[in-house]
Design a protein around this nucleic acid. Sequence first.
DNA 1: TTCTAAAATTGAGTCAATTCTGTTTTCGTG
DNA 2: CACGAAAACAGAATTGACTCAATTTTAGAA
Lengths: 204, 204
Amino acid sequence: MSGLRARQKADRHRRIIESAAALFREAGYEGAKIETIAAQAEVSIGTIYNYYQNKGDILGAIVSMEVNEVLNAGRGVVARPPANVGDALDTLIGIYIEHSLNYLSKEMWRQAMAISTQLPDSPFGQTYTGLDRSLTEQIRALIARLQEIGLVRQDIDGTALGELIFNNMNMMFIEFVKRDDARIPVLRAAIRRQNRILVAAIGV
Amino acid sequence: MSGLRARQKADRHRRIIESAAALFREAGYEGAKIETIAAQAEVSIGTIYNYYQNKGDILGAIVSMEVNEVLNAGRGVVARPPANVGDALDTLIGIYIEHSLNYLSKEMWRQAMAISTQLPDSPFGQTYTGLDRSLTEQIRALIARLQEIGLVRQDIDGTALGELIFNNMNMMFIEFVKRDDARIPVLRAAIRRQNRILVAAIGV
DNA sequence: TTCTAAAATTGAGTCAATTCTGTTTTCGTG
DNA sequence: CACGAAAACAGAATTGACTCAATTTTAGAA
């Protein structure tokens, strides 16, 4: 392998993503025309559609990178969580939220979320669902860790709890990206307040 | 008022909604062309855009009717809730979920949800956010009612709890409409399982 | 080196939502 | 009843995502 064809392919992939990312930032998702992305990446429109099924999939590739970084950052917290249930959850969720706008603007998030519900079976739709699942799983892993340490009661249904916490956080995040004037500290405080009910219920 | 102009306007509104609803059912949201809706309603394309800012707003009008019916049905449960926290929540949520597919197909829900996150400031986007808020508020009202009756502890943060329950349910519903093969009883069972954690925490 | 099938690229063409501009209808007033 | 302004309407034109048939490039066998 690694012949000319494979190298050119990888190179084109990179050029398309880079052009798209730059344009999405500058002009927004809707404002970025495929034609312009193609011109900037020095490929034709047809080639873009050879690499990605639709415009949303291009955005999807960028979103995936961002979420994977977040998942990675979360591993540290799961491995060595703060010695207090409330803080542990807040720290993990904090990582998710604080990292979320590194590469993606709120508008890009809105588009990504919209596409993932609109076309759940498209490549990106499936990827996005998988990312959500991974985040849920990571929260569940944190809970399991806290149970090991003895900070969370053994008889708690960790799966259901992980889903509950993720679903609530995710929904709050969706509302957050829908309002351009919404601020991260306010979002985090609201989620802390909601989780307080759970924390009280599951602590030993 | 109530001159010819106003009457014609109301009549056209109705005709557009009826044509659109019929077509969305038959052909799906994407499959329903504005041109066809216009022809069926016996108005021009331009007129449709005079009444609704975009295709999504037409769907939005239909979704609003559905959700308002659901809210109405929920009032009964809030007024006379089952004498058990778990059952009370399950009954209210059951009403929401069981009614949800009366007029709207999963595909229509997907589109509606997508549009509401994609264009949160469009008329429909704002309406949808308002509907979500009303549902959250109704769950909060149920909790308040249960506190009055003495089934839920007085020191529980009802607002946060209402949000937590709604957000989790809503997220589960979103995942439900994303999968055409997902079934209502399974959805309800999953939500019951998640809520069990909360029920245990808030009961007197 | 030459040749051929498969893979990749190209961009003009299609399709459907939305916009735009000129026309028609309604309303209130003299 | 006639008239002018404002509101509604119509549908042709625009726009931009996506398709597809024709062309070019590559890999690897002879």
